[in-house]
């Protein structure tokens, strides 16, 4: 059967947008194919790896497991927005300074989950860092540097 598409309206990286989506389209398909935003990647496709993380109303979601129509009315942020003002976000700076990636494929997801973590816990404990990032996988194994980067980001944000 062909399901009718519908128009959804949401805020994407600070600007209001609309998109024609079919009910079976996932959010990541719309972001990549409709808006050319490739920072979120579909890797495991099961919500386990975190590569497809985007922030929806300030909280991380797996955009590969999220129906695009459910984004209607939401405020969406992808990694592309973090340096929109021309300057890197403190979390991005911290990841670079701590050397918290090698290939970088998983990095947008880690950076965005770190944003949610620091919004909810500005001075996180090691346990909180591991808890929030437990759903993000780094196949290069830079976990120690990632934990350091999160602590550095917390200090950077705290001193702003």
């Amino acid at each position: 059967m062909t399901a009718p598409s519908r128009t959804i309206a949401f805020t994407l990286n600070g600007r209001p947008v609309t998109a024609e989506v079919a009910p079976h389209h996932t959010l990541i398909e719309v972001l990549r194919d409709g808006f050319g935003l490739y920072g979120a990647r579909e890797s495991c496709g099961q919500g386990l790896c975190g590569c497809c993380t985007v922030l929806l109303d300030g909280r991380g979601v797996s955009s590969c497991l999220y129906l695009a129509v459910f984004a209607d009315g939401a405020e969406l942020v992808t990694v592309e927005h973090l340096a929109a003002g021309g300057e890197l976000d403190p979390v991005q700076e911290a990841f670079i300074e701590a050397g918290a990636f090698q290939c970088g494929f998983c990095t947008p997801g880690f950076v965005l989950m770190t944003k949610q973590l620091l919004d909810e816990h500005p001075d996180p404990s090691d346990d909180q860092i591991r808890h929030y990032l437990s759903g993000n996988l780094c196949r290069c194994g830079t976990y120690p540097q990632i934990v350091e980067a999160v602590k550095l980001a917390a200090r950077k944000r705290g001193s702003v």
Binding site: R59, V61, L65, Y66, M113, Q116, G135
Partner: peptide, 12 residues
């Protein structure tokens, strides 16, 4: 819930 899947899944 702390060890139930992950933060993103629990957000949804």
């Amino acid at each position: 819930l702390v060890t139930h899947s992950n933060v993103r899944v629990r957000n949804v």
